[in-house]
Amino acid sequence: MPDEQQNLSREAEESEESMHESPPRSLVTAPIDIYQTDEGLVLVADLPGVTTDTLELQVQDNKLTIFGRVAPVAPSDATLLHQEYEQGDFLRSFILSDEVDYDRITAKLNNGVLEVCLPRMPQAEPRRIQVDGD
């Protein structure tokens, strides 16, 4: 029994040491809002700490991916006393409907909030087809 306890404490120490050596980078799911406008959809995501340089926004096939890198704010010698959120990079992806006009997607990032406009495809105009008789 004492041996087991020692082993456990040693393990705890080891993991603590490795934590100090390389803080694990984690991926965080950003909270989002989606609302509808006359033009289409607007997606708003909270990405605190992300700048236009560290944000990657891409559409591949029908998947929209948001990836934002966050640089650590606290100096490396600072001790963490109380933690409520995990420092990590933001990643989230969405499947877009066929109604979205991919070529006209626009995005802006202000104070850590990303706003992506997903305009609807313009309605196809009804086309008259000439019917010829023989």
């Binding site: 799911t29 909270p31 605190p48 606290a74 959120y85």
Partner: peptide, 30 residues
Amino acid sequence: FPNLRLQRRFPAVNFFETESEYLLIAELPG
């Protein structure tokens, strides 16, 4: 959704200590 930041106090804060000061870092997007 393991990392989804839902239903938590806003803003989330982290609290650090250095030799000379304390640092409070809060996520306040927008």
